[in-house]
Amino acid sequence: MAFQPYHTKTDRLAHYLYWGVGLGVLLFLILPILVVIPLSFSSDSFLSYPMPGWSLRWYEEVLTSEQWTSALKNSLLIGSAATLLATILGTLAAIGLNYADFKGKNLMLSLMISPMVVPLVISALGLYFFFAEMGLNASFLGLVLAHAILGAPFVLITVNATLQGFDRNLMRAASSLGANPWISFWKVVLPLILPGVISGGLFAFATSFDEVVVALFVAGPEQRTLPRQMFDGIRENITPAILAVSTLLTLFALALLSTLEWLRRRNERLQGR
C-alpha cells in the first residue's frame, strides 16, 4: 500500500505494526517446520547450527533401514486400503443424501460425521474393546477398518459440498437421451464430482497417514506405521534420521496441498463460480 500525504506518522506506524504482527504469527507457524529441514542434511548427529558439513547419510540410513522402510510400507498399505473403503462408502452416502429427502436424514448425517468429532483417544479406546471381542487387535484388517471410519466423514463432507453445486438437470438430460442410471453415473455424475471425490480421498489418506493414537491402541508390532515409528523415535531419542523423515513428509504435505488447491480451482472453473 502506498502512503498518501494525508497519512500521519501514527497511521504509518500502525500499518507497519499491523503487517509486522501478522507476518510474525505466520513466521511462528512456518519457521519451525522449515528451520529443521537443513539439519536433516547434516553430516553429524548434533541437532544445532552451525552444521559441520553436508551429507545425505541420514536419508541413506532411513531408506536402507528395515524399520523405516517397513513402517513406510505399512503406512502406504493401510492408508490406501482405508482410503479406498472410505472413499467408496463416503461418496455413495453423499450421493444418497443429496438424492432425496427422507426421515432421520439429519440424525444419520450427524452419526456418520461423528468419528471426525469424537476425541481420538475415545475412538481408540472403543475400537480397542471392540476389536478385542472380534479378535481384530494387532491385525491389518483392524487398523484398515479403524482408519476407514476416521476418514469416511471427510469424504462425505467434501463430496457433499461438491454436490451442492451439482445441476440435477444434467442427470435428467442423460436419462432423456437414453442413458441408464449406471451409465449416467459413470459418464455424467462422476466426472463432475470427481474433484470432490479426489479431495475427500486425499483427506482420508492424510488422516490415515498421520494417525498415531488409534495405532498406539490397536496395532501390534507387525502393523507399525510411519507415525508410530516417529512417535517412538521422538520419545526415545531424536536424531537427524527423524528429521529426514520429517522433511520427506513435509514435501508430501506440500504436494497434497498443491493437488487440493489445483482441484479446488478446477472445480470452481468448471462450475463457473
Partner: peptide
Amino acid sequence: LPFWTSLLVRTSA
C-alpha cells in the same frame, strides 16, 4: 502448509 503437515513432524520440529 502447517495445517497439512503431519503433527508428528511439527512436534519433532
